[in-house]
Computed example of a mutant assay.
Amino acid sequence: MRNPHSPTLRLRRLVAELKQGRENKNFTVAQAGQRLGWTASKISKIETTETRRIMAADLDRLLDLYDIDDPAKRSALHALARDAKERGWWSKYREVFGEQALPDFEAEASVIRTFEGLVVPGLLQTPEYAEALFRGGRYTGPDDIERRVRARMARREILTRFNPVHLRAVLDEAALRRMIGDTEIMHEQLQHLLYMAKLPNIDVQILPFSVGSHAALVAPFSILEFAEHLNPPIVHVGTVTDSVFFEQAGDVERYNMTFGDIQGTAISTSQSARFITELSESLERDA
C-alpha cells in the first residue's frame, strides 16, 4: 500500500506543469483558451487550482496544445490528475480541520519544523492529553471531543510510517509546565514526549524560562517542506477559528529566520531530554 498523499499538492504540481507548458509555448491565458475554444476564465481557474477536478479529456487537449508528447510524462500528469480527485482520511473530519486541512499538507511533507509556546504540539500529544486539552475549551459534547481526539491521533501516523516525516519541534518551557488534565496525564505526556524524541526522525528542543525573551513570543507556527521541487514550503499558523497558510516566499523566509533564531536559542536535544526527564520525575513524586 502506498503512502498517503496530498490531493492538494498533487493538483498544485499538475497545474504548475500545465502553466509551465503554456508559458513555454508563449501563450497567454486568453490565447490558450481561444485555441481550445474555451474561455480564458476556464484556463485561469485550472491554473489557480480553483478547478479541483480536471477531466482526462480536457487534460489531453491541454497537453496536445502545449506539445507535451512524451508518453511517460503524459502518464505521470494523468496520475497526478487522478490523485487530485481522491479524498484523504481527513475529509471526514472537515468540521475539525476546516476547508484547508493541515493533514492534507502533512501527508506529503518531508520535513516539519514547529514551534509551540503553550501546549505540546498536536503531533506529539497522547490521547488523554488531547482530550483534557479539548475539555478546557468552550463546552462541547463528549462525542465531539472524542471525534476531535480521533482526528488528532490519526495525524500522528506520519511520524511512524515507512519513510516518516522529519519533525523538528521547539517548545517553550511553559508548554511543559502548564497542567493539562491531572498530574498522571501530564506525567504520561512527558514520558511519551521522551519516547518520541528518541526516534531518529524527531528532534525536540526546549526554550527554558531562563532564556528570557525570544524571537517566537507570538502565535505557534509550523513550516512544512516537501521533497518535490514544484511544491515550495508553506507556513501554517493555527488560530482560534481556522488555519492560516502563508505561501509567499517573503513570508516563509521570515518564519524560517524566526525558527532558526529560536532553535539556536533553545537548549540542545540531549539537554532537553534531561530537562523533560527531571520535570517528569518531579510530577511522579508529586503523584
Rank of each mutant, 00 (worst) to 15 (best):
V149T: 08
Q100V: 15
A16F: 02
G264W: 04
R94W: 04
L63A: 09
H5P: 00
F246A: 10
E247W: 02
A249E: 03
A101L: 09
Q248A: 15
P71Q: 13
F275L: 08
R168F: 02
R52K: 15
T160A: 13
R274A: 11
Y195I: 14
L59F: 11
L102Q: 01
Y195W: 06
E106D: 12
R35G: 03
F97K: 04
R177Q: 14
D67P: 02
A84H: 09
G260Q: 07
A287L: 14
L217K: 07
E116I: 03
K42P: 07
E116F: 10
W90D: 04
G88P: 04
S110N: 11
L190S: 04
G37C: 12
V244R: 02
F221R: 01
A215C: 09
F134Y: 14
K198R: 13
M196T: 01
D182R: 14
F115L: 07
I206W: 04
S44V: 00
E173K: 08
A79N: 03
A57K: 14
T241E: 13
Y93R: 03
Q34N: 10
P208G: 08
R87E: 10
A40D: 14
D83Y: 12
D70Q: 12
N26F: 13
D83M: 15
V218A: 12
H236E: 02
L230V: 11
E188M: 09
V244N: 01
R2N: 12
A101Y: 03
L18P: 04
D58G: 07
E99R: 11
L176E: 08
I112M: 02
V211S: 11
S280F: 06
Q20M: 05
D143N: 13
A174P: 03
M153C: 08
I267S: 04
E157S: 13
A109T: 00
A227D: 09
R94N: 06
E188Q: 15
W89H: 07
L194Y: 06
I276S: 03
F115P: 01
R12M: 07
D67L: 15
T28Q: 08
S222N: 03
F245Y: 10
T269F: 03
Y93S: 10
N3C: 00
R156G: 04
M257I: 15
M257Y: 05
P103H: 05
H192Q: 12
F115D: 01
L63Y: 05
T239R: 12
K45I: 00
I223E: 00
L199D: 01
N163T: 07
W89F: 14
T140W: 13
P142Q: 15
E47V: 02
D144T: 14
F105A: 01
N3I: 00
